[in-house]
Design a protein around this nucleic acid. Structure first.
Lengths: 187, 187
DNA sequence: TGACTTTCGGACCATGAGTCCAGATTTACG
DNA sequence: CGTAAATCTGGACTCATGGTCCGAAAGTCA
């Protein structure tokens, strides 16, 4: 049932074009059933997102590949954000639908990403000023808005350029110590 | 006419609650007239935004106060972003309506902000790697999404904390030279 | 088989953006 | 002025879409 919806989103040119009626039809099921199962459009999108994101979650939490404990937090963070980037591009229509609805920031999935990101940042920085960790985590994720990414891609930035700039930014957000920052500002 | 709409947005608790019918009624005008004047809801929002943003535009382009040529680009950028922050908070409902609609990134107003931001960054950095200026400009602005700001405010970060973190980030985006960055990464 | 419960599906409702045209208002002109 | 043409106005109407609801179908048990 989710698969049918997923296919529809993947094929459609815009997420707004995928109506609940269309999804119900694609599942050869009544609209009532669809709504009984997911409660609302948002619920359906959430459920879809959940199935998609489980792979990410698993690889991060089971500490394999670039996420083993020995790897520098900076590198784990960079790898994590890069993973999210490709994930979003792979599911751009679904993600677009999610990010245009209100309340993504409250969604458990976003909250999870935020927590992971903040964790890596905290590991990487010493004891940063109050709020900086959370701010940096939020803004790193904000740089991954699908709309923004696609706009950059459509305006001449290559995916690799974006990747590099993002990595650069990660090191800046995490790798610089407070004292480095202070000497920098003082000049 | 725009004033009436503005008042409605300011009073309503959510921008979705402000319907075109309501605006037409508040203007004591027919819906037809409203649509003839602005073309669509998006057009109306845009027109409203334009009137609001003109003040910002003027102060930045006329080079007064924190925007005189002598001021460091970093400081001008920080001042600019801070201005946008307060501007967005002052007009949160309107801005929310804009940012939830698709295509803000294409809007001339956003493009203007992007240009100004990128200009300051370029002034402040030497000759950064291809695409970094644009990337940094985009992501600095992305950190100002009203939804994000309000979420942070609702989760214990004070406005001053956000301001400080933002300033910090500006200096990192602009103030660090390429060689500083490289020695940093190498460690 | 027959009474009772659960689930299904699509007709139906509510809402809000955008259209359209009959009438009002203004302009043009003799 | 008076009248005809041109323009403008407002709100009734269409249309799309998320969400509800109820009669029917299917399942369950004795």
């Amino acid at each position: 049932m989710l698969e049918a919806a997923d296919t529809l989103f993947a094929q459609a040119d815009g997420p707004e074009r995928v109506t609940m009626d269309a999804i119900a039809a694609a599942c050869s099921v009544g609209k009532g059933t669809l709504f009984r199962a997911f409660g609302s459009r948002a619920g359906l999108l959430d459920a879809l997102w959940a199935t998609k994101i489980d792979a990410l979650r698993a690889s991060v939490e089971s500490g394999v590949a670039p996420f083993r404990q020995e790897t520098l937090p900076q590198q784990r963070l960079a790898a994590f954000l890069d993973l999210i980037l490709t994930f979003k591009l792979d599911n751009r229509h679904l993600i677009r639908a999610l990010e245009f609805g209100p309340g993504i920031l409250q969604s458990p999935h976003y909250r999870w990403m935020l927590g992971v990101t903040a964790g890596f940042i905290e590991e990487g920085m010493g004891s940063p000023p109050e709020g900086v960790v959370l701010y940096n985590a939020h803004t790193l994720l904000a740089a991954l808005h699908i709309d923004l990414i696609e706009d950059m891609l459509a305006n001449g930035l290559s995916l690799d350029t974006i990747r590099e700039a993002q990595a650069r930014r990660v090191y800046m957000a995490v790798g610089i110590t407070e004292s480095d920052y202070k000497t920098l500002v003082r000049t």
